[in-house]
Measured scan of single mutants.
Amino acid sequence: AVCQVIGMYDYTAQNDDELAFNKGQIINVLNKEDPDWWKGEVNGQVGLFPSNYVKLTT
């Protein structure tokens, strides 16, 4: 993983390639090539999510 982030809001996947997560959930970021849509993993599920829905862990 590149880094870990925390969901600031609940996110519901809109497409099959997206990653759903809940507020407060830890997401392992796998790829930040696109500044707006990062690739991440939660509980074995991998997908894209909007980078503005998360904050970096300290």
Results as ranks from 00 to 15, higher is better:
Pro50Asp: 07
Leu56Ser: 14
Trp37Glu: 04
Gly47Ile: 02
Glu33Tyr: 05
Ile26Gly: 01
Gly7Lys: 03
Lys55Phe: 05
Ile26Phe: 06
Asp10Lys: 09
Glu18Asn: 00
Asn52His: 07
Asn28Trp: 10
Ile6Glu: 13
Tyr53Val: 09
Phe21Ser: 00
Gly7Val: 06
Glu18Pro: 01
Asp34Pro: 06
Glu18His: 11
Asp16Pro: 10
Thr58Met: 07
Asn15Leu: 05
Met8Thr: 14
Tyr53Asn: 06
Asp34Val: 04
Gln14Tyr: 00
Ile27Gln: 00
Gln4Asp: 00
Gly40Arg: 03
Ala1Cys: 05
Glu33Cys: 07
Glu41Ile: 00
Phe49Cys: 01
Asn43Glu: 11
Tyr53Ile: 10
Val29Glu: 00
Ile27Arg: 02
Thr58Ser: 12
Asp36Gly: 10
Asn43Tyr: 04
Gly40Tyr: 04
Gly44Thr: 01
Gln45Ile: 12
Gln14Leu: 08
Ser51His: 07
Ala13Trp: 03
Asp36Phe: 11
Val46Trp: 01
Tyr11His: 14
Val54Cys: 08
Gly7Cys: 15
Val54Glu: 00
Gly40Asp: 04
Leu19Ala: 01
Val46Ser: 09
Ile26Leu: 15
Asp10Asn: 11
Asp36Glu: 11
Val54Trp: 03
Glu18Ala: 05
Asp16Thr: 11
Tyr9Cys: 15
Gly24Asp: 06
Asp36Ser: 12
Leu30Phe: 12
Val46Asp: 05
Gln14His: 07
Tyr11Ser: 03
Gln45Gly: 05
Val42Phe: 08
Gly44Glu: 01
Glu33Phe: 05
Trp38Gly: 02
Tyr53Glu: 04
Glu18Ser: 08
Gly7Arg: 02
Asn22Gln: 15
Lys32Pro: 04
Val5Glu: 02
Gln45Ala: 14
Ala1Arg: 12
Glu18Cys: 09
Pro50Gln: 00
Asn43Gly: 10
Ala1Glu: 13
Lys55Arg: 14
Lys32Asn: 09
Asp36Ala: 14
Pro35Leu: 12
Lys32Ser: 11
Glu33Gly: 10
Gln4Phe: 04
Val46Gln: 10
Asn15Pro: 00
Met8Asp: 05
Ala13Ile: 04
Cys3Tyr: 11
Asp36Pro: 06
Val46Leu: 07
Gln14Asp: 10
Cys3Ser: 07
Leu30Asp: 01
Ile27Lys: 02
